[in-house]
């Protein structure tokens, strides 16, 4: 299961976005024709001010938001055009980590992890919680890997923020996804926990060769964990390159002003 990605697999895990546009209200585009190719490896961080469309971009990929126009090519299909069963099957290959963790609060931790398998397990087995043995075993393994082995049968609403996000990451990994989308995974956490969460996400995804696309406010965290940074401003891409190439001038262009940089 933990195969190292070869070149073919890496190519298979890439995302090609072309001319992606999203208007929540007609005539007021939040995304103005974004085109970007995200290779199937490593961590790609998307930085930018609030309200610039980072979340919208990420949510268009797994279609929690429906794009107005454009293409999102992934594993030979255009995600922007899928619906019904095809969309559900594509979503199984895309893990997602949320800012507010979005765990099912009244389910146990292990049940939340097993939610990651719902695309594969028929509903009548879900109803009686008869998940396949290997899924349950994998869930326990992952729980140990994120350091929550003793919390399996605790209810999710009994956990702290950092613990919840670890469960959120483990749930995404449970899908055996070909890409993980993380929408501000650390924004609700304290600075120390934020680093821990990014380390866990980086480690678990890296071990499995799963590319990660992460929206992140914190530029330092982005530079520390990402191999590529995409800066968004005004609904377009204002910077795209390795962390070293990101200068103050770029940051001023992305966020505007400069007082905050001191």
């Amino acid at each position: 299961m933990n195969m190292q990605p070869d070149a073919a697999a890496a190519a298979d895990r890439s995302l090609v976005i072309r001319n992606l546009t999203k208007e929540y209200r007609a005539g007021q585009p939040v995304l103005k024709g974004i085109s970007v190719t995200i290779e199937g490896r490593g961590v790609t961080a998307i930085i930018g001010p609030s309200g610039t469309g980072k979340s919208t971009l990420i949510r268009c990929i797994n279609r929690l938001v429906d794009p107005t126009a454009g293409e999102i090519l992934f594993q030979g299909s255009d995600l922007a055009k899928l619906s019904g069963v095809e969309l559900r099957q594509a979503r199984r290959r895309i893990g997602m980590v949320f800012q507010e963790y979005n765990l099912v609060e009244r389910l146990s931790v292990i049940e939340n992890l097993l939610c990651g398998r719902l695309g594969y397990v028929p509903w009548w087995r879900t109803l009686t919680r008869r998940f396949p043995d290997e899924d349950v075993a994998h869930a326990f393994e992952l729980l140990d890997a994120v350091g929550l082995g003793d919390f399996a049968t605790r209810r999710a609403d009994a956990l702290s923020g950092g613990q919840r996000q670890r469960v959120g990451i483990a749930r995404a990994i449970m899908q055996n996804p070909d890409v993980i989308l993380a929408d501000e995974p650390t924004s609700s956490l304290d600075p120390k926990t934020s680093v821990e969460i990014m380390e866990i996400l980086d480690r678990l995804a890296g071990e499995r060769g799963i590319p990660v696309v992460v929206n992140i406010h914190n530029v330092d965290l982005a530079k520390r964990f990402a191999s590529r940074i995409i800066g968004m401003a005004r609904g377009t891409i204002a910077f795209d390159g390795p962390p070293d190439a990101l200068t103050e001038a770029h940051l001023i262009d992305i966020y505007g002003g400069e007082g905050w940089l001191e």
Binding site: N62, L64, R88, Q89, A90, R91, R92, R93, I94, G95, M96, F98, E100, N102, L103, V104, E105, L107, E111, C115, G116, R117, L118, G119, V121, W123, T126, L127, G168, R171, Q175
Partner: peptide, 22 residues
């Protein structure tokens, strides 16, 4: 909370499974 529903939906779960688990 639709956030919880959204998260389960994002895993590719069918409508019935979303009902049961979220």
């Amino acid at each position: 909370s639709m956030k919880q529903v959204e998260a389960v939906r994002a895993t590719g779960a069918s409508f019935a499974s979303v009902l049961i688990m979220a």
